[in-house]
Design a protein around this nucleic acid. Structure first.
Lengths: 225, 225
DNA sequence: TACAATCATGACAGATTTGTGACTGCATAG
DNA sequence: CTATGCAGTCACAAATCTGTCATGATTGTA
């Protein structure tokens, strides 16, 4: 989960923004002092900063400049004013974007997401199903167990994908047919057995302890466990 | 010098924006058709796109989405309206920022510079992709392996660029078509095979150990590994 | 234990996908 | 105009994956 640092002197505003952001899957750190916020930035992993301009002691532009002395974290400025001079001053002090209050939830989340798209530091896990020591990689159509990696054929891949994405569930041959073949295929149900065999062969010769994981459920079908 | 691609259906607006940008040290390419602009983006080195929303034929959101299918170039949307729904829609279709007309010169240059700050060495990095002993040179459209250097045709170049920029990932022919051709091409899918063959021939006769790197993934497509 | 149902396995045929050569069209340069 | 090189299409051969069948092994049950 990505963390956003909120800096505003009004506690009410901090709470409000947090309420906006939480449903969109962000964690928030709230801070009323610009000075303390700089300290937090150095210690915590922060993905983005939302920074109010009108603050006592140290204003938003100053905070932003200090941040830029040591960090490239994306910064969005918040202000009540709509003056374009403010805007230019904000961007020149190193901010990446600028939102005028009052803003609505969609604008906030859209701007936050637009900026975060630029920093895809987190691993994409959607292309990879991980179960125990196994990884099923959709980019390379291969199955990995610790250091061993084996490319799969299409049918093998779809079968493993079905099985491994719901471990311990027993799939009937029918269900595996539907997972790997078109719905209205006239393929013999026993063909599934063939592919299961090919899989076992291929994985065993590569050194996978596959018999411990890919199991036959007598009278029903197969499962991964 | 950084190049900015301007897309607007009104020639007057294109000329006006160009007048704004030239004093700030930018080179401009002006285009009134979204479709043609996509073609330009694939061929030219463009650092940033300024995209009008209200256009006949293909509107700005659509153009932006098409751009995002093959490029991460920063995009700023232009519109006469101040509706926040527009704003959200723009950011969601992949834009990075949003300027409402009429805008002034300072705002335009501030926003452009804020975005470009995010891509400081972009130009140099994208001119040369290095993977292992291979170098793909965007300046001369050629591929180098140790001392051997071979010029590539455009299509060959785009195919290699896609493959080599994400080694081990298996690309389908569809994906390679999108990477190397205009998005709405009616080119036969097997044409990809032809270019792959030409590549292999060309590289093999020059002495590249290409078979070890450019691999066929049966039933899916091709990969670099 | 004996029997019936179910599964694993090997061999092979069939289907699909890919590689390759030959050809056309197009644009460009000389 | 002609020559050249690139892009795209087609047809057929080659490679590889998929599906079927027969047979023997395994499992559950009476």
């Amino acid at each position: 989960m990505r963390t956003i640092l909120l800096i505003d002197d009004e506690q009410r505003m901090l709470d409000l923004i947090e309420l906006f952001l939480i449903p969109h899957g962000f964690k928030c750190i709230k801070e009323t002092s610009g000075k303390k916020a700089l300290g937090i930035l150095k210690k915590e992993k922060v993905s983005l900063v939302l920074l109010d301009i009108m603050m006592p002691e140290m204003d938003g532009w100053e905070v932003c400049e200090k941040i830029r002395e040591f960090s490239d974290v994306p910064v969005i400025m918040l202000t009540a004013r709509t003056d374009k001079l403010d805007l230019v001053k904000g961007l020149e002090s190193g901010a990446d974007d600028y939102i005028t209050k009052p803003f609505d939830e969609r604008e906030l989340s859209a701007r936050v997401n637009a900026l975060l798209r630029r920093f895809p530091k987190e691993e994409k896990e959607t292309e990879m199903i991980i179960y125990g020591d196994f990884r099923l990689d959709k980019e390379t159509y291969s199955l990995q167990y610790r250091d061993l990696k084996v490319p799969l054929t299409l049918k093998e891949f779809f079968i493993v994908e079905a099985l491994i994405s719901r471990p311990t569930k027993t799939y009937t041959r029918e269900q595996l047919l539907h997972a790997a073949w078109d719905y209205n295929t006239y393929t013999d149900i026993r063909t599934v057995d063939s592919h299961i065999r090919n899989l076992r062969d291929k994985l065993k010769t590569t050194g996978f302890p596959i018999d411990e994981f890919l199991k036959t459920v007598w009278g029903i079908g197969y499962k991964w466990s």
